[in-house]
């Protein structure tokens, strides 16, 4: 059994938080992760408050355990979605793709535990001061929106800079990764990519196949030119996008249009040609489909073996 201050804080059994992934993290997956003892997360993605309400209701019909909502701050509906999180009494909110300062007071006043995803020390410090319960330090190995600094480098610096619990994300898919970030000072992990292949994850089968077949060098970062770097699998879409980014004759607006709808095409349609299949570098380590609960128990059991065995490394 591995203990962690975030288990008591969030009312969960194992310190594993599921990543908030657009078109992936719905109420069904979140409930499966929570039922497995982790913290399931519903992604509010770029949908409106009505979508989020339905997903929260869905999760509540499937689990009595706590779960959270991820608010993607670049969403045009971020404001109404933020309000819904507070109104529906969701216990935890994680945030991504920006600085959630303007919503922090509302959430905290409503009793929501706020756990922002941060990609820098300065943002982590700002979030601690604004009342965050913990931060998720997410390295550039992650899938989806990413910063540049890697997990190995970011996590210890964030741990040194803040007094609140730090959860590590980016590049973690098994018990070894869990133990490694525990050694860096993190007291829990956020995992996205491995849950893509969970039985309860409703994405298209082609997407799951691509994750299972992915190698260590299967992902690429696009979108740097527009300031929204995103990691996804190398596909015809991502290669074409990368090429377009270097085409200085192409206006930014046209580049932006290239990406519209590509996440849905990947997750819902399984469109291998035009879809954008978000995934972390760790996709290369994800080799089998499992129930979400089994993913969690396997990671925790492996982590325990590594952490207990580590005492033999020093004499």
């Amino acid at each position: 059994m591995i203990n962690s201050p975030i288990c008591g804080l969030l009312g969960i059994e194992h310190p594993i938080i599921q990543g908030g992934m657009a078109w992936v993290s719905d109420g069904t997956l979140a409930a499966a992760v929570s039922n497995g003892g982790g913290l399931g997360i519903i992604s509010a993605m770029s949908a409106d408050a009505g979508y989020l309400s339905r997903q929260v209701a869905r999760a509540r019909s499937l689990t009595d355990r706590p779960f959270g909502v991820n608010v993607m701050l670049m969403s045009p509906y971020a404001g109404e979605v933020a309000r819904t999180v507070a109104d529906m009494g969701v216990s935890v909110v994680t945030t991504g793709a920006g600085n959630p300062s303007k919503y922090m007071k509302m959430w905290i006043d409503s009793g929501v535990a706020v756990i922002p995803v941060v990609a820098s020390v300065a943002l982590a410090r700002m979030m601690e001061r604004s009342g965050a319960s913990a931060v998720i330090a997410e390295g550039g190995e992650s899938g989806g929106h990413v910063g540049d600094t890697s997990t190995l480098v970011l996590v210890p610096q964030v741990c040194d800079a803040v007094g609140i619990p730090v959860i590590a994300a980016g590049g973690i898919a098994d018990g070894r990764g869990f133990a490694a970030v525990r050694a860096l000072g993190a007291c829990g992990v956020q995992i996205g990519t491995r849950f893509l292949v969970a039985d309860e994850c409703s994405i298209h089968d082609n997407y799951k196949d691509k994750i299972i077949k992915a190698s260590d060098i299967a992902t690429v970062v696009t979108g740097r030119r527009l300031g929204h770097a995103v990691r996804s699998l190398k596909t015809p879409f991502s290669r074409a996008y990368l090429k377009a980014e270097y085409d200085s004759a192409l206006p930014d607006e046209d580049l932006e249009k290239l990406g519209v709808g590509a996440l849905r095409l990947a997750a819902v349609e399984g469109d291998a040609e035009h879809g954008c299949f978000l995934a972390g570098q760790v996709a290369g380590m994800v080799k089998k489909r499992q129930r979400a609960a089994d993913i969690i128990s396997e990671i925790m059991a492996e982590a325990e073996v590594v952490i207990k065995g580590a005492s033999e490394w020093a004499v």
Partner: peptide
């Protein structure tokens, strides 16, 4: 943006 300062750089400078 033209100077090459992204949102994370801005947060860092504000903290400084």
């Amino acid at each position: 943006e033209d100077l090459g300062i992204d949102s994370l750089d801005t947060v860092e400078m504000v903290m400084q």
